[in-house]
Design a binder for these strands. Structure first.
Length: 429
RNA sequence: GGGGGGUUUCCCGAGCGGUCAAAGGGGUCAGACUGUAAAUCUGAUGGCAGUGCCUUCGCAGGUUCGAAUCCUGCACCCCCCA
């Protein structure tokens, strides 16, 4: 058993614990069971879940047993922590689909098959859903002093806002999560809960409840919230969250997100997310600082994460696409080389006849590819010198594209600006 | 229930009868500089056509040669008094 506490600490993943002094020893004694909760708001995980997931992963690697709790029940209510408004309630069907989607992705991070420390996936709907209202009030609610609940940051912040209230339902959220902890303690001897720093109140609520109900002392640990150096949220793209599902964010796009990360965040992300050990990360960071323009850190980070999320084949596609797009002028490629990329960057198929005669006006090509949202937008881009065909700048609005502009047998590479790419494929009707 | 204020283009926010597709800021996009970074600077930012047309200022009507701007009704939001 390796010292997971020290490992997490140097990685900067420990924000607060219930017992800094004794937790390291407690974890070193024997394998423990640790859980983190995931809110099933969508059918895919995103980068926001990555912290908790990789923390569970590190616990497992250190010899402990992780439990991933999917909030099928609590997801119906919505955690008010860190939220400014009440969440839209999800239907049971939607929740079920979301839970299934998330479960399948977790397999990439956690080993569910190991006989001794195999991860366990639980859905709190399985026990919360069976609770009767009166029964819950009597067995659980009774142990929650309202004045303590009101003192929690998550509740106070919401009550202090004049423009949004806090419904009774949301107010009750922490009871459910608290009970989850007790349940997992009873069923799996789970004595440690981890979560983001905004979960502190919910975690301690569970610890209090366990003490009152079962007379045991459970533990909690939070990690810092994932933000970028400029204060904005990590993992936000133009089109929304950076999803882990390949159908939502392809390997190339995922890879590119990390390549584009600013220097100030690279070190932190390497430590947070990658499996690389300390000497390795320190070496990469040192190399990066020596010559930041080579983006050593970003490259390493992007490769590690893309491999983790999309596998070796996904990484190859992403790197190949990057080589092609960010290399020199594009020509003499084959369809075979482009086909893997085709599904990953915005792409469109057009009839080959478009290229005949006068050819396809570049303005129309940009619109068709999705790089421009209107003809005016396309004109603007060209006017300002931001339009490229096969990485060669197209400086005239009147430019028309013909068969000679194909990069491979049937495909053409369009680009708007420095790094927005799209492929057009011309097919026989 | 009574009184007052509001609803503007992606967001915030000016505009209060024509010169308004609508100031300013944010965001976004493009360019320069770089390193597919950050910061900075420049330009663009309803649609279609190129000195014109169409659609937009909560919704529906109305007054005007002409309205985002005035009137009427409706909807939603906020504030004060009960």
């Amino acid at each position: 058993m390796s010292d997971v506490f020290a490992e997490l600490a140097w990685r900067g993943l420990i924000h607060q614990t219930t017992d800094d002094a004794h937790l390291p020893g407690w974890l070193g004694e024997r394998p423990r069971t640790v859980y983190a909760g995931f809110d099933p708001t969508a059918d895919s995980l995103h980068v926001g879940h990555l912290m908790a997931l990789t923390i569970l992963r590190r616990f497992q690697q250190a010899g402990h047993r992780p439990i991933a709790l999917v909030g099928g029940a609590t997801g119906m209510i919505g955690d008010p922590s860190g939220k400014s408004e009440e969440r839209q309630l999800l239907s049971e069907d939607a929740l079920r689909a979301n839970v299934e989607g998330m479960q399948s992705q977790m397999r990439r991070f956690l080993d569910f098959d190991d006989p001794t420390r195999g991860a366990v996936l639980v859905n709190n709907y399985d026990w919360v859903g069976r609770f009767g209202y009166l029964e819950f009030l009597r067995d659980v609610g009774k142990h929650f002093p309202v004045n303590v609940m009101l003192a929690k940051d998550s509740v106070r912040n919401r009550l202090e806002r004049t423009d949004s209230g806090l419904s009774y339902t949301e107010f009750s959220y922490m009871l459910l999560q608290a009970y989850d902890f007790v349940h997992l303690y009873r069923e799996y001897d789970c004595q440690l809960q981890v979560g983001g720093s905004d979960q502190w109140g919910n975690i301690t609520a569970g610890i209090d409840l366990a003490r009152r109900l079962d007379g045991v002392q459970l533990h909690g640990m939070t990690c810092p919230l994932l933000t970028k150096a400029d204060g904005t949220k990590m993992g936000k793209t133009e089109s929304g969250a950076l999803w882990l599902a390949a159908e939502r964010v392809g390997p190339y796009q995922f890879y590119q997100y990390w390549i584009n990360l600013e220097d100030a965040d690279v070190d932190k992300c390497l430590r947070f997310f990658t499996d690389l050990d300390r000497p390795r990360i320190e070496a990469v960071v040192a190399e990066h600082l020596e010559d930041p323009s080579r983006r050593t850190g970003q490259r390493c980070l992007a490769a590690e994460l893309t491999r983790l999320v999309h596998g070796e084949s996904g990484l190859r596609i992403a790197q190949r696409a990057t080589e092609i797009f960010f290399g020199a002028e594009i020509s003499e490629l084959t369809d075979a080389e482009l086909v893997g990329i085709f599904t990953d960057v915005p792409s469109r198929e057009l009839p080959r006849t478009e290229l005949a005669g006068e050819g396809l006006a570049i303005v129309d090509a940009l619109c068709a590819s999705g790089l421009a949202k209107s003809k005016g937008d396309a004109r603007r881009t060209i006017d300002q010198g931001g339009a490229y065909v096969n990485n060669r700048r197209a400086d005239s609005i009147d430019r028309c594209l013909g068969p000679a502009d194909l990069a491979s047998e049937t495909m053409m590479v369009l680009r708007a600006g420095k790094k927005r790419y799209a492929l057009l494929r011309f097919v026989e009707p």
